[in-house]
Design a protein around this nucleic acid. Structure first.
Length: 167
DNA sequence: GCCAACGTTGGC
DNA sequence: GCCAACGTTGGC
């Protein structure tokens, strides 16, 4: 995963893509809530990005997975850096992990705020058709990473496809 | 609904 | 430390 580490460790502003199945949490939910905790991440590679790389002010693409149409549906901003995910200590929660404690949370989350819901979502097909985006992690065959680095070039190209000004 | 690709677990 | 078995993800 050297490529991911390299992408995630630049000095300039960091850009990311967070996946969510809209049945679990959608852009509409975020429009309603304004801000949310990005909890439930239970993959070590994604956890490491959350805990070690993602900072306040970083920009995030919101991606709807596993639905028709799969698409980037808006942007978010990180408003709180990583802290222990309390859902890991909630026995009744789907993502309960008995190994998680207050002292050693194992799993982390960040807070995010909606910046923009795209009036015209950028569908997966549009991403695939854009030569500037052929390296995107989300397009890699078999990629299951739910927290992914995005380059500044990709960020700008996606905004161009959405007809939005990059911010 | 299918199933390939992937990450994790646990026996050895 | 290996790797088979298992469960999950997520595009198709």
């Amino acid at each position: 995963m050297a490529k991911i580490a390299a992408k995630g460790s630049t000095k300039s502003r960091h850009y990311w893509l967070f996946k969510s199945e809209p049945g679990a949490y959608s852009i509409d939910d975020l429009v309603r809530d304004g801000t949310t905790t990005w909890d439930g991440v239970r993959n070590f590679q994604a956890r490491n990005l959350l805990r070690d790389e993602i900072r306040i002010g970083d920009r995030v693409l919101f991606y709807h997975s596993n639905v028709e149409p799969m698409a980037i549906v808006g942007t978010m901003e990180v408003t709180k850096a990583a802290y222990g995910d309390p859902t890991a200590r909630d026995k009744k929660h789907d993502h309960y992990d008995p190994k998680s404690t207050v002292e050693t949370p194992i799993w982390y989350m960040v807070d995010v705020r909606l910046r923009k819901r795209f009036e015209n979502p950028v569908t997966r097909d549009m991403l695939k058709d854009c030569s500037d985006l052929s390296e995107m992690v989300v397009l890699e065959k078999g990629s299951r990473l739910s927290i992914q680095p995005v380059t500044g070039e990709e960020w700008r190209a996606i905004h161009a496809l959405a007809g939005e000004k990059p911010d």
